[in-house]
């Protein structure tokens, strides 16, 4: 078999893995490790634990890959596995919590961009603090991962309308914070 390219569609890679090409699974790991790692950090708040968590999640996804029916996208299916693993891991411990600085994100930004990002993080943290704890993960999946309401609903099991209204409020708060910032700069 030809080696699979990094731009191949998830479904093609999955077909290859099911045909016995185990190495092809690495492409999926590379593609989604940030999301899974960060969910791990959010639930466990510890770097080593997050890596162990991610390893488990990917192995679980690999073993159960034949059960992926393609009713949702692979990324949503994987997110659901990671979310359930996170809930199970923290059943008696803490809840999901977005981190101030993202340990998965090691970009260097210009001071101005860094400021905007900090401002955004602060606004979203305020928004998260205002909701019941269990919904905080929805804001991260929406803002960090760019997931859509429906997919977040599939991954977490929360009603889409609830997710939508929480994201709506967070976005409005963020927009107001940015607007206030702008007026302050103009003065």
């Amino acid at each position: 078999m030809n080696p699979i390219g990094p731009e191949a569609a998830d479904e093609d890679i999955i077909a290859r893995v099911l045909d016995g090409d185990t190495d092809a699974f690495s492409v999926l790991v590379r593609r989604y490790q940030r999301r899974v790692l960060r969910l791990g950090y959010g639930f466990l708040k510890d770097a080593d634990a997050a890596e162990d968590f991610s390893q488990d999640v990917f192995v679980k996804a690999y073993v159960g890959l034949a059960g992926f029916q393609g009713r949702s996208s692979f990324s949503t299916w994987l997110t659901r596995i990671a979310y359930n693993a996170g809930i199970n891991a923290t059943r008696n411990a803490g809840r999901y919590e977005a981190l101030d600085s993202d340990p998965v994100d090691t970009r260097s930004l210009s001071p101005e961009d860094e400021h905007i990002r900090a401002e955004t993080a602060a606004a979203l943290r305020r928004a998260m603090a205002a909701l019941p704890e269990k919904y905080a993960v929805c804001l991260d999946l929406y803002f960090r991962d760019g997931m859509r309401y429906e997919d977040i609903g599939i991954a977490t099991g929360f009603p889409v309308n609830t997710i939508k209204s929480h994201v709506f409020r967070a976005k409005r708060d963020l927009r107001k914070a940015l607007c206030a910032e702008e007026t302050r700069n103009d003065l």
Binding site: E51, D102, V104, L109, R117, F143
Partner: peptide, 13 residues
């Protein structure tokens, strides 16, 4: 800016 970048961070799984 807040969205996760496509490149992986320090850990490679």
């Amino acid at each position: 800016l807040y969205r996760l970048p496509d490149i992986a961070g320090s850990s490679n799984m």
